[in-house]
Amino acid sequence: MDKQTEIELQAAAFRRLQQHLMQDRTDVQNIDMMNLTGFCRNCLSRWYQEAANAKGIEMGKDEARETFYGMTMDEWKANYQTEASAEKQAEFKVAFEENVANKG
Rank of each mutant, 00 (worst) to 15 (best):
M1E: 05
D2L: 07
K3W: 12
Q4R: 11
Q4C: 10
T5I: 05
T5G: 03
E6A: 10
I7Y: 15
I7F: 14
I7R: 15
E8P: 02
E8C: 04
E8A: 02
L9T: 13
L9E: 13
Q10A: 15
Q10I: 15
A11H: 07
A12Q: 14
A13Q: 10
A13E: 08
F14I: 09
F14N: 02
R15A: 15
R15W: 09
R16L: 14
R16S: 15
L17N: 09
L17K: 04
Q18S: 09
Q18G: 09
Q19H: 14
L21P: 00
L21Q: 04
M22D: 05
D24R: 11
R25V: 02
T26H: 05
D27V: 04
D27W: 01
D27L: 07
V28W: 00
V28C: 07
V28K: 00
Q29Y: 02
N30V: 06
I31V: 09
I31D: 06
I31T: 04
N35M: 04
L36R: 06
L36S: 11
T37A: 14
T37I: 14
G38Q: 01
F39V: 11
C40N: 05
R41N: 03
C43V: 05
L44Q: 06
L44C: 06
R46C: 08
R46V: 09
R46E: 15
R46Y: 12
R46A: 11
W47L: 09
Q49Y: 04
E50F: 11
A51N: 05
N53F: 07
N53R: 11
N53K: 07
N53E: 03
A54R: 05
K55A: 14
G56K: 01
G56W: 03
E58M: 07
D62K: 13
D62C: 08
D62S: 08
A64W: 00
R65T: 08
R65E: 15
E66P: 00
F68R: 00
F68Q: 03
T72V: 03
D74N: 09
E75G: 03
E75I: 10
E75R: 02
W76F: 00
W76K: 05
W76H: 02
K77L: 11
A78D: 06
N79A: 13
N79F: 04
N79H: 13
Y80Q: 00
Y80A: 00
Y80F: 10
T82F: 08
A84T: 00
S85L: 02
S85A: 05
S85W: 03
E87Q: 12
K88G: 02
Q89H: 13
Q89E: 03
Q89A: 13
Q89D: 12
A90Q: 12
E91N: 12
E91I: 03
E91V: 06
E91R: 05
K93M: 07
V94K: 03
E97C: 05
E97W: 15
E98R: 14
E98T: 11
E98S: 10
N99Q: 00
N99D: 05
V100G: 01
A101T: 13
A101Q: 13
N102V: 03
N102C: 12
N102R: 12
K103C: 06
K103W: 07
K103Q: 13
G104L: 11
G104K: 13
G104S: 12
